[in-house]
Design a protein around this nucleic acid. Structure first.
Lengths: 68, 68
DNA sequence: TAAAAATATCCCGATATGGTATATTTTGTT
DNA sequence: AACAAAATATACCATATCGGGATATTTTTA
């Protein structure tokens, strides 16, 4: 997950992100370290928050172009 | 999830899909009925299988264009 | 309309998840 | 450099969620 990178770019702390997403700081930490994985709902919340596609968030760059 | 639709388009049964994805038929059924949600790994497997983006799979059509 | 195929659901053990609390690390100030 | 504060990571734990096997139900086919 490109979470840490996106968060850093936005210049916010795990705590602020956590509050904005209605979750807790340690949960964000775990996503970033890869210790835990968010469910689909949370995944979409995160993508929306940073205005990126889920594919981008998941670092899926290597897919065909005319990909729906 | 646009799973049922994709599967139907491909004209395969839940069982065949399950075997191809190394899982069981009831798991596919539950994804399709929305009773359960796949984790990220499974989600990506499914997107790859059908050659679609995760966003498409998740029916995320309503996002800005120059979206990374 | 009976058999076969496909799909949905029940039950259950195993695993993963998220929260609180706490430890550790990093950053900033003097 | 030393200390305080902020930021991040980890331990423990209760609970939720997951997936499988078995089975029920529905749909398709002959």
């Amino acid at each position: 997950m490109r979470l840490k990178e996106l968060r850093k770019t936005k210049g916010i702390s795990q705590l602020k992100l956590a509050m904005d997403l209605n979750t807790s700081q340690n949960t964000i930490s775990r996503y970033e370290t890869g210790e835990r994985e968010p469910g689909i709902v949370e995944l979409i919340k995160i993508a929306d928050y940073f205005n990126v596609s889920v594919d981008y968030l998941l670092e899926r760059t290597d897919y065909p172009q005319m990909y729906r």
